[in-house]
Write a protein that binds this DNA or RNA. Structure first.
Length: 804
RNA sequence: GGGCGUUUAGCUCAGUUGGUUAGAGCAUCUGCCUUACAAGCAGAGGGUCUGCGGUUCGAGUCCGUAAACGCCCACCA
């Protein structure tokens, strides 16, 4: 028998353990069709917050749903523990920078730290009820993943999509590494717009340049004006003298200069921004690189060498001012590009880096995007927008320690890269040696190892390959090409989704998955996104689970439409708590009346029973339709709405028949029993994707014909009870009206109705006549008079028994 | 500045292809201990659906436009 009160903490621990011991979520290939889910490996950089719970729960519910629909669900889980996020976590915990700790020791600390957090994360996700097969758990720093990531790199080299080139790249002088365009985050900062006077060497004519970055004056290689700028175009061809720095540079014409921006005269430095890089390439300008990799001015620059960028800016403004070159200084707020991992402003550097070709295959990536179903569909537009606007090839080199090493050495003499052979993988070039003993190009026998590691995304973009055990003898390639579903939040469409598409296209020439479901964000308050880095997550997932139970937290996670942002709401949790409590209570009632129940074929249902069976059938149809479109919240809405109707109307009616067979008859009682038996079973199934724990507890106590409710299959009802559904609903409205009368007179609902006269349409009249006993018992009616009417129904006479 | 979304009751949110008096929960108010549930039940009040214009017999829903907010991108002269 079910307990009087449901103790979620105790029951959830019990079933979690049961599922684990009985391997309920184990994946084994069999005859069933596979439904595979590529779920994001969470980044290991501190805490799992409520936003993760929101997004991961939604995909998890799809896993449960597909299982109930008879699919063999492949749902692995992993952690993204390589790369910069982990390094920064370790640096933060140690209070030291990686280079201060040393490469070997630092890597060791990274492994230890990520292991520690992953154990916590795994525990948290398990408690949330994530139905993954943990035996397939992967890490992005494990040898097997490194092997796959290195194979992916070598495959791209072979296919000619990956190249090594000295090229300007985005550089973070906080993290001391190059980064990719996708890792940029824009930030608004306050700065000054400085109007500086230059003059021409030829005739000493003064002209003004406005700049936010005067410290770049030593890096100026030329000055540009727009050829159509009537105020300034006479300067073209002359020579500009740079104040303070005392260097002369040519004044050139380019149409890209905006006449109305600043003063209309632009200084071109190598490199201040992306336009500088374009001009540098276009006009073959000299390279004047003045920053060190840790964000200082190089020593060879007189007066400013060795200063930090911002110090130099301050100093140079002072010098310009005292020389009388400053015309004016304006306060300015503008957007700068920062590194999303650390928030510091991004510079450019020139060094040899590995790049993956993006620019030559944009059309292909767009085409693949079109072959994928995006849910909600407008997320596809965001993908296209990103692909269309991408401006750089993908730089995958990082000058860091904790990542997948490039399987590459370089010839000491000629610099020719020598690649590891695939059999050698995983390889660490700092420790291992190439198979070849001689450089194929010059014959030299000494090699220098590549010490850069790969970008995190270079590896997380191969999660489908990790899942299919790419390159292994025993693999899942045939069942996972493509995978069924990718799920993630909208912020990583441009990274994780895009890069995975890039890799899948290059490796296999096809889409990585058939469907993508994108969740929204959780807002801390209106308009404020919760994020790890901002530290504004006031609600800890574990606290919530302990206080409300995993089922309740999942209820919250399932609210709303797919892709829409939600605000964290305690009220929604309360609502979930009440719903689960109600499921528990009604199950208790139903169980009480099933003690003598034997399930058998039966079709002589009472009218009211047909009404609720038909209503359920209609609701479930909608429920399934929503889930087939990944609309978890909407599916829950219709289910919840039906459920309260079931409790408040149907159960209130049928309960009299269940309690008093001597009055209502044995067969009508059986009809009621069969109905509640059937519907509760199906309700538990439908609710199980949201509330895996409470539904399991009830299922095991009442039905228990399978090892778990999560291994059962949804079989939709096929009755034809359309009339009963329609007229039954009308009958409920009449019941509600009569109850309203009692309420309005401040009377108990048990107050006897001495006489009730209703005029109604033939359909409704038929419904009430056929369920007369139920109807009268529900409303405590003594005398019921029915008559025909044209409109649906009208209560003509209602006499209440009022006791003095 | 560009792309995408959001704007519905005091709060959190639904509202399918355009179709009667726009829904739910919470909150508020009024009742009711009714053999599952007072963490409950029955009711009530509360909305010019962000503004403006248009299409239509009919618009919360479609089109245009403006505003606010959010995400992503561009903008460092």
């Amino acid at each position: 028998m079910l307990d009087k009160k449901y103790d979620s903490l105790e029951k959830e621990a019990k079933w979690l353990n049961y599922w684990k011991e009985n391997k309920i979520y184990e994946f084994k290939p069999d005859k069933r069709e596979v439904y595979s889910i590529d779920t994001p490996p969470p980044t290991v950089n501190g805490k799992i917050h409520i936003g993760h719970i929101f997004s991961y729960s939604q995909a998890e519910m799809i896993a449960r749903y597909k299982r109930l629909r008879g699919y063999n669900v492949f749902y692995p889980f992993g952690f993204d523990d390589n790369g910069l996020p982990s390094e920064r976590l370790v640096e933060k915990e140690q209070g030291k920078k990686a280079h201060e700790i040393g490469r070997t020791e630092f890597s060791k600390l990274c492994y230890e730290t990520t292991d520690k957090y992953e154990a916590e994360f795994q525990d948290l996700f398990s408690r949330l009820g994530v139905s993954t097969d943990w035996s397939m758990y992967y890490k992005t720093v494990s040898p097997s993943t490194i092997k796959i990531s290195q194979m992916s790199f070598l495959d791209l080299i072979e296919k000619g999509h990956c190249y090594h080139k000295e090229s300007p790249a985005l550089w973070c002088n906080e993290c001391l590494t190059s980064i990719a365009q996708a890792e940029l985050e824009t930030k608004t900062i306050k700065t000054t717009f400085n109007y500086v006077n230059f003059e021409t060497v030829e005739d000493g004519e003064k002209f003004t340049i406005a700049t936010t970055r005067p410290e770049l004056l030593p890096a100026i290689v030329c000055v540009f004006v727009n050829p159509n700028d009537e105020v300034h175009n006479h300067l073209i061809g002359k020579t500009a003298h740079i104040p303070v720095i005392n260097v002369n540079v040519p004044i050139m014409a380019d149409e890209k200069v905006a006449i109305d921006k600043g003063t209309g005269v632009v200084m071109c430095c190598t490199f201040g921004d992306q336009t500088d890089i374009e001009w540098w390439k276009k006009y073959n300008l000299p390279l004047k690189y003045i920053f060190t990799e840790d964000g200082r001015i190089i020593d060879s620059v007189p007066n400013y060498g060795g200063m930090k960028i911002k110090e130099a800016r301050k100093k140079i403004i002072e010098d310009l001012d005292s020389g009388g070159y400053i015309v004016k200084i304006e306060e300015l707020e503008h957007e700068v590009q920062t590194h999303e991992r650390c928030g510091s402003e991004v510079e450019y550097s020139v060094m040899k880096q590995w790049f993956i070709d993006i620019m030559n295959h944009k059309e292909d990536f767009l085409k693949i995007g079109q072959e994928i179903n995006w849910y909600p569909d407008y997320m596809h537009a965001r993908y296209e927008e990103w692909v269309n606007n991408i401006a750089w090839d993908w730089c995958i080199s990082r000058q860091r320690y904790f990542g997948v090493p490039f399987p590459v050495w370089y010839c000491k003499d000629c610099g020719e890269p020598v690649f590891a052979s695939k059999e050698q993988l995983p390889v660490n070039p700092l420790v291992d040696h190439p198979k070849t003993t001689q450089c194929p190009k010059c014959g030299c026998s000494e090699f220098i190892p590549e010490k850069d590691v790969m970008d995190t995304w270079a590896t997380s973009s191969v999660t489908p390959l990790i899942n299919m055990r790419y390159g292994e003898k025993e693999n899942y390639e045939s069942i996972l090409k493509p995978m069924s579903l990718r799920s993630n939040a909208s912020e990583i469409i441009r990274t994780w989704d895009f890069y995975t598409i890039v890799k899948s296209y290059y490796h296999f020439g096809m889409k990585p998955w058939n469907n993508v479901m994108i969740s929204g964000f959780v807002m801390a308050n209106k308009g404020e996104k919760i994020s790890k880095s901002k530290g504004n997550s006031k609600v800890e997932p574990l606290d919530l689970i302990n206080e409300y139970s995993a089922d309740v937290v999942r209820y919250w996670a399932a609210s709303g439409r797919l892709g829409t942002d939600i605000t964290f709401s305690e009220e929604t949790l309360q609502r979930g708590k009440k719903l689960i409590n109600k499921i528990w209570n009604v199950s208790k009632l139903i169980q009480m009346h099933l003690e003598d129940y034997q399930d058998k074929d039966f079709d002589n249902f009472e009218y009211v029973d047909k009404w609720i069976l038909g209503s359920f059938q209609n609701m479930e149809k909608e429920y399934l339709k929503y889930l087939d479109h990944y609309e978890i919240g909407l599916a829950l809405n219709v289910l919840e709405k039906f459920f309260w109707n079931f409790c408040d109307n149907y159960i209130e009616i049928v309960k009299h028949r269940l309690y008093r067979p001597e009055e209502f008859g044995v067969e009508p009682r059986y009809s009621g029993q069969k109905t509640v038996y059937t519907i509760l079973y199906k309700l538990l199934q439908d609710f199980s994707i949201f509330f895996p724990y409470v539904t399991e507890e009830i299922y095991q106590d009442i039905y228990h014909e399978n090892k778990s409710i999560h291994l059962t299959e949804i079989k939709p009802l096929t009755y034809s009870f359309d009339d009963e559904v329609m007229y039954g609903d009308s009958m409920c409205e009449i019941i509600s009206e009569v109850r309203g009368e009692k309420s309005n007179h401040n009377l108990s609902l048990k107050t006897v109705v001495k006489e009730l006269e209703i005029h109604c349409s033939p359909g409704i009249k038929d419904a009430i006549e056929k369920s007369q006993k139920d109807f009268k018992a529900t409303l405590f009616v003594d005398k019921l008079v029915l008559d025909n009417a044209e409109k649906d129904y009208e209560i003509k006479e209602l006499e209440l028994e009022i006791e003095e």
